[in-house]
Structures are given as C-alpha cells and as structure tokens.
C-alpha cells in the first residue's frame, strides 16, 4: 500500500466525472472513449466531428500534462513490443465486441446503473486482475 495516492486519485476522478457530465448535459453524448476512438477509425456521417474534437482535447490535455506534470507519463512497466502489440489488439478488439471500456461502462454505465455496464465492469476487472496475477506472480513481473 506504499504507493497509495488517495487525494490525487480522487481529484482526478472528480475531473473525469465533471468532463463526462459536461458531455452528457451539454452535448447529450456518452463519454465512452473506446467508442469515440472507433468512431474516428470507421466514420459515420454526423458523428465524426464531435468525436474528433474530444480526442483532440485528450491529446491537448496530454500536452498540458507533459508541461505541468511530466511524471504522469512514467511508464514503469517491463513489456516487450510484442506484449504491447498483443495488449493493444486485445483492448481494441475486446472493447468493440463488448461495446465499451473503463469510461463508457466503468464510469458512465455504472453511474446509470446499467445492468450491461455493471456486468462488463465486473468482468474486465476480474480478467485484468487475473492477467496481472499470472504476469506478476507466475512470470516474475515482466513479459
């Protein structure tokens, strides 16, 4: 528990909540990032521009972090390029098959008490924990 950062994490969470709430109350959209990302890769008329603006905002926010809080990008893991490629493929494919990720299901869906999102969140937390268990405790932490 020595890495516990309750205050920063809570403040960050509140900011995420404010951002997602603004998307809902002002634009009427769900801030589900896997869906927004996929919407740019496979554009649908009338749905692309706002998604592009949101993603541009994410990267712009990232640039601000780079200036103000560079330690936010400390990677800290030992992962081969092959492992990272596999991880990206699984995340891209899985979030499309399951229609959402940590933002769309984990934050927006759970808050709406959506049965699908609560189930999805329980499942991805469980398989995430299982994967980390295998890597950290059976493979010694690097892959």
């Amino acid at each position: 528990m020595q890495n516990f950062t309750p205050l920063q994490s809570l403040i960050g969470g509140l900011l995420i909540g404010v951002s997602a709430s603004a998307m809902l109350l002002l634009d009427g959209k769900v801030a589900g990032i896997s869906g927004i990302f996929a919407g740019i890769l496979r554009p649908v008329r009338g749905e692309t521009l706002w998604k592009g603006c949101f993603l541009a905002g994410l990267v712009a926010g990232g640039l601000l972090l780079r200036l103000l809080l560079p330690q936010a990008f400390a990677f800290g893991l030992v992962r081969s390029p092959a492992a990272l490629m596999a991880a990206g493929l699984l995340v891209g494919y899985g979030t499309r098959l399951g229609n959402g990720c940590t933002s769309g299901h984990g934050v927006c869906g759970v808050s709406r008490l959506s049965r699908r999102s609560i189930a999805a969140t329980a499942v991805f937390l469980a398989t995430g924990a299982l994967t980390v268990f295998v890597i950290n405790h059976l493979f010694g932490g690097s892959l």
Binding site: I33, S34, F37, L55, L58, V59, G62, L77, R79, A83, L84, A86, A87, G88, L89, L90, V91, G92, Y93, G94, T95, R96, L97, G98, N99, C101, T102, S103, H105, R116, A119, A120, T121, V123, F124, L125, A126, T127, G128, A129, L130, T131, V132, I135, L143
Partner: peptide, 23 residues
Amino acid sequence: LILGAAIFGAGWGLGGFCPGPAI
C-alpha cells in the same frame, strides 16, 4: 458483451493501458 469485456480486461492487465489513458 461478457466475452468482449473479458478480452478487454486481459489486454488492460497485459499493457496497463485502457483507451483513454493510451490516447
């Protein structure tokens, strides 16, 4: 939904990134 979430979770645990933080 369940299969997709399970696959996503495995990728999340493997790479430590979900879509928002990665982008």
